[in-house]
Design a protein around this nucleic acid. Structure first.
Lengths: 212, 212
DNA sequence: GTCTATAGGAAGATAGAC
DNA sequence: GTCTATCTTCCTATAGAC
């Protein structure tokens, strides 16, 4: 049996992939060891042989997902000097990532809101958005150049992520309650979001307006 | 025993309140009938006497929460003619509501993402953001008056809600990974969000700028 | 490492007395 | 309506053979 890298996939890898998919879809509380074993093509006993408990398996998956996510975010936060260029790239890449990981944001936010004792451990070791100072420098430079109005890095990051993530996490809400189940209309809406968000952020940062 | 309205609270009311708090905190999968019974001050048997199954109890709670939420949102969407005034009021009221219901958005979005068969029923009957057309009229009028640049009502609603909701749903993520657990800094950040979001939206809508 | 079988317990739901 | 006691099912986890 081969995985996407062309390597022979070990049982452990199969378990990790199965567990990831089940946890992402069902959450910690809704996930069943039986289903993970099934998707991995093994039985429950073997599953417990590799990862003694459900908790340990969960924490492994959760750590991996968090690490990957923040690695990508940190990458986006460096290597930029033009703020408008940065916004465009960040939003573009973040939305692209979300399209390939639709379950991810709901999973992470939900599990972190239900504070399973498990998750607390993670905070100790991996507090991982390190590149905020780099963004602060870009902002400072752009403000001094008169290109944008002042904004904190934390607000800018929160704005961009919130505008991108909410339509994904809230998809069922938006589709059913805002578009009344009209899938075509919702699809069109989602296709236009990227451009909309980029323009929204850029517009909001552009100086030289008197509000009210 | 009295509830906040000063009425004698019946057993049923106590159950509903207990169930609401447990479901909001733990979610459908994490909630336990035993805990609901405990918080209601009764036992499991009586709980099942009132609501035969956990599913029925859940759907009752979920319906109520959804109805209340969208009732409020619909209220905000009517009775406004100035678009800037509308944005300010909507964001202000929405954030105030969130402060009193911190568990609500994560609960609703998470439960709707895990499509329990239960929830499907709700879509049939209550597709509830009816006042979109009213917002569209305000937007149209404001665009024609040259007060704002064009935007769809759906995008404006999604923007406002996303910018307000994400810091609440993603609080643990933001606090731990963006503010590195610094509660004071995070608190300050949250206190400034309302003004930030209002200005952000207003700025983004203001015309008379050439982007790039 | 991998399996079958089963222990052990938690949780939803019911029976039946009061 | 409300309780105690119990049933039944499901699920995590382990024992032990191969």
């Amino acid at each position: 049996m081969e995985n996407e890298k062309g390597n022979i996939s070990t049982t452990e890898q199969q378990i990790l992939e199965a567990a990831k998919s089940v946890f992402l879809e069902k959450g910690m509380d809704g996930a069943r060891m039986q289903e993970i074993a099934d998707r991995a093509g093994i039985n429950k006993a073997l599953l417990h042989y590799y990862f003694r408990t459900k908790d340990k398996l969960f924490i492994t998956i959760f750590r991996n997902l968090i690490s990957n996510l923040f690695e990508q975010i940190n990458l986006q936060l460096q290597n930029n000097d033009d703020i408008f260029d940065f916004v465009e790239k960040f939003v573009t890449n973040y939305i692209a990532m979300l399209e390939h990981n639709v379950y991810l944001p709901n999973f992470i936010m939900n599990e972190m809101n239900r504070n399973h004792e498990n998750i607390v451990q993670i905070f100790e070791s991996e507090r991982v958005i390190q590149n905020v100072p780099k963004l602060e420098k870009i902002i400072k430079k752009s403000v001094e150049a008169g290109e944008i109005i002042p904004i904190t890095a934390e607000n800018l990051i929160t704005d961009m992520i919130g505008l991108c993530v909410f339509p994904v996490v809230g998809k069922p809400v938006i589709l059913n309650f805002l578009f009344r189940g009209d899938i075509a209309a919702h699809k069109k809406f989602m296709e236009g979001r990227k451009e909309h968000v980029i323009n929204l952020i850029k517009n909001s940062l552009t100086p030289g307006k008197q509000i009210k």
